[in-house]
Every structure is written in C-alpha cells, then in structure tokens.
Nucleic acid binder design. Structure first.
Lengths: 361, 361
DNA sequence: CTGTTAGCGCGTTCAA
DNA sequence: TTGAACGCGCTAACAG
C-alpha cells in the first residue's frame, strides 16, 4: 500500500481554523493557549472540531515571532564521539521535555571554527539561551551570548573571562579520589595522561589536583603526559615514553606489592591515570597491542569517565553524574531565561569510583 | 574581568538598520539576499557600515515565516547511545553544512512515544524535511510527513507502507559476507543474535539473509536468538542458552579446526553473529565474565557495526559506511525539498569486513 | 464571553 | 535604482 505522491496541501493556518469554526482568530488563539475559562463550551467544541478536521498545528515560528520567545535553546557540543557528551545530552533532553523547551543540538566535532559558526547560527535563530560545552570558544565569541546577551550555562568547562553559571564534575575531588585509590593500591609511579589543555578548564583542574594529591602524600613520582590524539606521530612518541616507564618499573604487579613507595632507585609500580574516556581508549588499545590480552594485570589503568566498554576492558573508572549534569544545566538556563538575576552559580557534582581488575590485586 | 550584567539590549531589526543607514527596509533586505547588482555602491557601503555598527543579524524565524522555508530539517534518531547513530550524524552535519541546512536533532532514546511527540514537534516548527531513523513509527504517524506532506528520507530502516527514499547498509550482502567468513573459518554452528525485530526492517533483513546464506552452504546449524536488551531476565535466559551451545561445542577452537561441518552428532565449532553493536557489547561482556580475559580464543564473535572498542575486544566486525549514509540521506532530502519528483530511491551501501582475533585462528 | 485591530521582523510586489 | 505598502501566521491590547 503506497502513499500517493499527491501535491502537498498547504498546512492549515489559524485563519483557516477560524473560518472553519465560524469565529475569529482570537478565539482560536485563546483556545491554543489554554485560556479555556474564557470560552463558552459550545464555541470550544466547535473549535476542537475544526482543528481536528483540518489537522491544524500552530506554527511555532509565527508564535515565536510575535511573542519574542520561541522555546528554543542552543546546545553546543564539542564532541559527540565522547560518550560523556551523549550521556549529558540525555539529561538535557529530559529536562527540556519537562520544561517545554526544544534543544537545538550543534555538534562542533572538535573544530573551533565550527563552534563559532554554530554560535552565530543559534543567535540567528534567536534561541532563548545556550548551553555550552565547547573546545575553544573564547570570551569574545561568547560575549554577545553570555554577557548582556542571551543567557548561557557552561558544562564541564569554563570560558575564561566569562561569568556564567556552570555545572560539571567536581574535578578536584575526582582527581584526588583516583589518585588516592592508586596510592592505596600500592602504585607509586603514576602517570597522568591528558589531551592538550587548550582552553579546557576541566583538563587543567584535573591535572592540577592530581599533582597536589601526589604531593600531599609525599609520593614523589608523579608525571604528566600530554597526548594530542589527533596527532598520530606525537601519540606514538608519548606511548613509547610510557612503555619505557612501565618496563623499567615492576615486572609484575603482584610482585611489587610490598614495593617501597617513593624511594628513588628502586623498582616502582606504575599506574596510568587517564583524564577522560578518549584518552583511556587510546591507552587501552596500545596496552593491549603491546602486552597482550591480559594487560590489565600488567599495568594499572584508571580513567575519569565510565564508557560502556570499561567493564569489558576491566579498567577502573570514576563515573561522572552525566545525566544530572545535563539536567541541572537546563534547569539553570531555564531560571536565567525566566529572569533570575542571582549571582553566578557553580554546580560541582561528585564522581563515583568504580574499581575493576586493572587496579585491584 | 567580568562581563557586567547589564540588561539585554534588544537585538537590532531590519528597521533599525534601515534607519541607521538612512534608507528603507527594502534595500537592506536586498543587500542581505545578495542582490548587489541593484544597489548603488554608495548605498551598499552605508548599509554595510550600519550592519556592522549595530551588529545586526537577520532573524531566521521572520525570514522563514515570510518565505515559507526556514532551512530547518528534522533528524529523528532512535538511539544516540549506539555509535552507529553518532557516526551517521556526522555525515548528516557535514552535508547540512554544505547545503545550508540546519538539522534539528531529536533523540527518541528508543521510546516510541517520544518518536511520535518529536515528529509532531518538528511539524510544528515547519521543518522542510525529515530524516527518520526510528524504532516504531508506523505509516500513520509519518503520513502527514512522508505522503503528501513534507519530504522524508529513511535511514537504516523502512517504515512499512510508506514509500520514501531510503539509505542504509546493504543488509543482505553484509549478512552474507559475515556468514561466509565464519563458515570459511570453519565454524559450523552459528548463532545469529538480534534485538526484537519490532518494526526494524534492517534487523529482519539481516536475519533473513543469514539464514539464506547458511542454507545455501548446506550448513545445517543455524540458530537465531532474540535478545531484548531492556529485559534483564530475558537476557540471562538467552545467554544461558548460548552457554549451553558453546560448551557442548568444541572445547577449544584450535582443536576443532578440522571439524566435520554440519554433520550432526559431532562436536561443532560455535560462532556468534551479533546483528549490531549494542548486542555485540552485551555478548562480549558476558563472554568475558564467563570465559575470562581470553574469551576471544574460546568463542568466535562477529558483529555488524564497528564501534571503537571492537579493536580492544578483538572482535571481527562489518563496518558500515556510516558517514556516507548520513551524507547521502541529506542529499536525497535536499533534492526532494527542491522539488525532485523521481520515483522512490533506495541507496544500499556495502559494508566492509574487518577481521580480528575472535574469528581468526 | 467574543471579535476587531495593530503589529512581531521580514520579503515582495508595485510605483516612483 | 529606490522605497512604501501589504501580508506571512500569530498574539495582545482594546473594545463590545
């Protein structure tokens, strides 16, 4: 049974409905906006019938034009490839649904230029607010948005110089949690592996907290490795450096258990601390290639973010409350849209440690 | 340096620009639409200056209202959690970018009710077309869209009773490719594992092609296992069934190499054929839990879809040309929007076999 | 309770 | 080459 390719019959407008119901446009408008109390049941019934008959659906664009609010919000995403992003998005969608908002999702695919273009596009569509999770937007780009312009809420990362609400992981606490766990498990040579810091505050904060935690425990061997995943050659070099460290360290994790922490000159037990899931994946792939299927028992890997393959790879993770992050972001934005003028708010949510084979004896 | 929270200065309108440039709105409109030839260079310069001074940006909504086209297209997605979807999306975005379209992304999160709601919402925003990758939309829901209504293009799955362009994997060829590979590697007891078919034509097609391929090779032991990932208890039962088969089959894959294919009563070499990535993940998790880290050498797993963790898990996959699927879908849709009236088209793209440890000796 | 009127920001006649 | 007037689909006064 094929649908006939007949010419598209122009969609009914409010005027059509009014004519069909034998009344004026205003009454239709009132009906649409739920002002039922001011409509006689009789008229109301006629309107309902007319709407059904014409399969009428109000034009949001026209409404928006008139009212000055179109219920659209922009959602600028740096990288949908990162499971974190998708999970946050689910929270965003749920909240939008609950608040009658419609998110315009813009995926910049890690390209700063794209971010700029999308931000401008969103402006052009007169979104009522923006949720920003971007790689390289600077204050200038966001100025017409955040300051004096439309409301903005930052997710996961700050934009320097811009004061706006922000919601994300409590990076300091999370990095400390991870570091402490590794130290407790007896690892004393820890490599924090992170993508280039760029403008991404969360990366900076995590690394900083890691170093602080190491220092606080008098654990001398703390290293930071910056891995630009987009640069194959650089990645190779970085991984080679890790290999040297791993192979100089304890040959077997079980063996090194009583290792003398921090004492220089002795074999140390090496652990890798990935700043996020993309990094962790790259590391895991390498470790598997180099040390075989059982690599988890050879070198410890802990990651912030808890992608669905973490269980499969047996890596320890710190799971972010992604859904809630997205949900809260929309709530914040909604309040701002509604005119709340309170001081800028930061919402830092705690991460949850999930211990798996790679860091347990 | 904080941005002062001054009151939002109303965005400039075309009227403001006209006044600022000392001319009428019409000229501004002409300028915006690139009709430069009809503007004196002098006026044109004044307009440019005024636009810059006011930081004017035309209101897309108003334009859309007037022109009857707002450059918006809807993109209905069944499941962003599936890496396939994200990859397709990247193709969609690239094509939209190239064609001056803006995709409204709607994520139904596998809920049929959500799909209905979003479809209606899209209608309400007067999108010019829709790309549909849905779980349960029926012809009725899509009627105002596909038939006689706004143009639609289907991705990955058909909607029964609806004739619309569609683009996706050549499921038949892909399933044959996978089946042949497994048979060639000497597996003769193959389980096709798939989510409930529902309205999803691709699932049905893959399963059908699998059975056909098995029959064509006179390979007697072909099974189909339907796994409803949302139903934990049902999954457990299904997995138990698989375990029985696996453990009844050859104890070691290397051993069974010379196994007598299809002969009943002898030990057979068991392989699992996952219909897509979510299924493959569930299977891999179970196999790892039951057979340990080296499960890949114990039981073969092949999957349609090539998620980023496939390499990590060492499973053989059939990679879909996801980016191209998304890109082509938008191209098709764009043509329809532009009024192309040709017969309904199907674009079936080939998959690529990527052999990994789990199915090679 | 109901209809009339005047725009929202913009594009498109049509005259000037 | 330019601009004034009208209307897109809808809402918000303002009468009745």
């Amino acid at each position: 049974m094929t649908t006939p390719p007949q010419t598209a019959p122009r969609r009914a407008t409010i005027t059509d409905v009014a004519r069909e119901a034998g009344t004026g446009k205003t009454s239709i408008s009132r009906y649409l906006n739920g002002e039922m109390s001011v409509l006689s049941p009789e008229l109301r019934a006629r309107i309902e019938a007319a709407i059904a008959r014409l399969d009428y659906q109000p034009n949001q664009m026209a409404r928006g034009l008139k009212r000055g609010r179109n219920r659209l919000i922009g959602m600028l995403l740096a990288d949908l490839t990162n499971p974190y992003t998708v999970e946050v998005l689910q929270g965003v969608e749920a909240a939008c649904h609950a608040l009658g908002l419609m998110p315009l999702i813009c995926h910049a695919a890690n390209e700063v230029e794209m971010e700029r273009r999308y931000l401008q596009l969103l402006t052009t569509y007169r979104v009522e607010g923006v949720i920003v999770n971007a790689l390289g937007v600077r204050e200038e780009t966001l100025r017409p948005v955040g300051g004096g312009g439309i409301p903005a809420v930052l997710v996961d990362r700050l934009v320097d110089g811009l004061s706006a609400d922000m919601v994300g992981l409590d990076n300091r606490a999370a990095a400390e949690l991870g570091t402490r766990h590794l130290l407790e498990q007896g690892f004393d040579d820890i490599w924090f592996v992170v993508q280039p810091f760029e403008q991404v505050s969360s990366r900076q904060l995590r690394e900083l907290a890691f170093r602080d935690a190491m220092r606080a425990q008098n654990a001398a061997r703390a290293h930071t490795l910056v891995l630009d995943l987009a640069d194959t050659a650089a990645v190779e070099r970085g991984l080679a450096e890790l290999d040297r460290a791993i192979e100089a360290g304890g040959d077997d994790r079980a063996m090194g258990k009583a290792g003398n922490a921090g004492t220089p000159g002795t074999t140390a037990r090496v652990a890798l601390f990935a700043a996020n899931a993309p990094v962790a994946l790259r590391l895991a792939l390498h470790l598997k290639a180099r040390y075989g299927a059982g690599w988890q028992t050879r070198v410890a890997l802990l990651s912030i973010d808890d992608p669905d393959w973490a269980e499969l790879a047996g890596i320890t993770t710190i799971r972010q409350p992604t859904y809630e992050i997205g949900y809260r972001a929309v709530e914040f934005l909604h309040e701002r849209i509604e005119g709340v003028q309170s001081a800028v708010r930061d919402c830092l949510l705690p991460g949850e440690l999930i211990v798996r084979a790679s860091t347990s004896r």
